[in-house]
Design a binder for these strands. Structure first.
Lengths: 214, 214
DNA sequence: CTAAGATATGAAGGATCCTTCAGTTTTGGA
DNA sequence: TCCAAAACTGAAGGATCCTTCATATCTTAG
């Protein structure tokens, strides 16, 4: 919806000395901290630099503009999630419905919870500029991985595995997101951890054509 | 996470002549249009006023600041959704599990789709400042309505209706949100409309203690 | 040790943007 | 018709904020 993601969104230069790598890391974590403390609306180049213990100019040596910084942060986080999920899919191939369902739900929760702070911060960026492309790519990767996984489940057949995978991804992603984005007390997270696998399995059983095992 | 919602977020004055009511309406729709066209980051008091065919000063006669405007927009939209859902709950009281499940899913989808444009725009605001309180209140209203509805379902018993209602609300809200927020082709929306009721029913059957009817 | 390249600094230019308010126009009742 | 209240206008003050670049400091190969 927002401004089209600029093409030149990539880092300006790659670090060659070790200290610059440290600087970049500092900038990244500072960005997330500012994001959490003040929100996207108050995220300022100066503020981030200050928190990173770095001057503003330094930031601009690695990112052509603010957007590029935010973009990089989101991309990294998304990569973490996708990688975790692809790993889970590989591990689950050929297992029965219950195992696959639980495995996916747990993997998703773990991936998000592992860096709950980052995740929560990231959600705030989404609206600021066009992440639809990034998100879409990540979603497609997941659907394309889950679909064959569903086909390989021995004790269930799905009429339209692509459709089911799509819905499953939406269900996992969305449910976790709203709970985390809301007040998300420790209590709510626990409720989520308890119920998400059920929801997951419930839907899959519903989508399966002939539940050979109940 | 973001700045705490100011107390003085309410409209500055209430319209007394009919033309001011029209002005307010124009401002509201203009806000949504700008939101969709340019995103929150580019939403400007001037831009909104321009689009509404009104001067900036006029806006400030009704809202003390930009935030108040956004706040009002979100509040209105949230009210629409909640009202729709409460209506659905009332209609569904005492019906069987399948009916209740389908009814809730459909009601939610309809409420969102009815003003898909607004909804999509609203999602963009969430990150800008603290809507957690608003959202949380809406969520609680829904959970408090759904919970007794579940208790009244004749053909299923739930161990913890509150928990199930909580999860159901998260599932509905989250799943629809991510699909709408993504590219959300007409195609994806159709898939969602088809699969959401299944997911809903699947989860509820899973959460029910003794499924008297399969 | 030294020079060249890499990295860091931060004041300041330029661009918005939010908000105000003194003054104008419109409305509706007396 | 007339006027007081309501509504509207929009230029301009004041506050950020993003980004640049001339300069300074650090690192490492030779």
């Amino acid at each position: 919806m927002n401004r089209p993601a600029p093409d030149l969104l990539k880092p300006r230069k790659t670090p060659q000395q070790s200290r610059s790598a440290a600087t970049i890391e500092a900038i990244h974590t500072a960005t997330i901290q500012v994001l959490l403390a003040d929100g996207v609306g108050r995220l300022t180049t100066t503020r981030v630099a200050e928190r990173a213990g770095v001057s503003v100019g330094t930031m601009y040596q690695y990112y052509p503009h603010k957007q590029a910084l935010l973009f990089a942060i989101v991309e990294r986080q998304l990569d973490l999630i996708v990688t975790a999920m692809l790993g889970a899919v590989e591990r689950l191939e050929g297992h029965d419905l219950q195992t696959v369902s639980d495995g996916l739900a747990t993997a998703w929760l773990d991936a998000k919870m592992a860096d709950l702070v980052s995740s929560r911060a990231i959600y705030g960026i989404a609206a600021e500029f066009d992440l639809a492309e990034l998100m879409s790519r990540a979603k497609n990767l997941m659907v394309e991985a889950i679909s064959p996984l569903l086909r390989a489940v021995p004790d269930a057949r799905f009429a339209d595995p692509d459709l089911t995978a799509f819905m499953l991804a939406a269900l996992l992603g969305g449910t976790v997101r709203v709970v985390m984005e809301a007040g998300s007390s420790e209590d709510d997270l626990e409720r989520l951890r308890q119920e998400l696998p059920r929801a997951c399995l419930g839907y899959l059983k519903m989508a399966a054509l002939q539940p050979t095992s109940l």
